[in-house]
Amino acid sequence: MTETATAAAGQVSDEELLARFPGQPVDHDSAAHYRGRLAHRLLINRCGDCGTWHQPPRPVCPACWSSNVVATEVAGTGTVHLAIFLHQGPPAPGVDYATPHPVVTVDLDEQPGLRFTSTVVDADRERVRVGDRVALEWIDRGGAPLPVFRVVEAAGSAGGESA
């Protein structure tokens, strides 16, 4: 991501931002996160005073009540905490429920219990498990960037979280 592209994503108007993410919970408190998506940056709210991360985006820090919360880029690495496979669900571009469609909630490395939910690319049902180590990737969904995960180390392998 170049500096120029990042700045351009920041200039997207509120109206345009809503149009790029139809049906998503885009509002005053989450707009920075979605602007980050347009620039392929996964932004999670972090307190500018005490440093605590929180998710989903809130207008104040739940730990110290500071309103100095800053949407801050995370590495996108973490460990699968919850893992399910949808055999049916809401229609979405590129989503095939016959596969079925994996959904994982990932414990991000930045802070224990700080979690982000998305799908996993290039992994079938047998290859996505609680405890897997994952890394961030970006795909296109309906013309908007979607942060997704890729398994980089299976649960139970060397260095992975033990069950």
Partner: peptide, 9 residues
Amino acid sequence: GVSPAPESL
């Protein structure tokens, strides 16, 4: 209503 994304819990 509007359907959430498939990745909503």
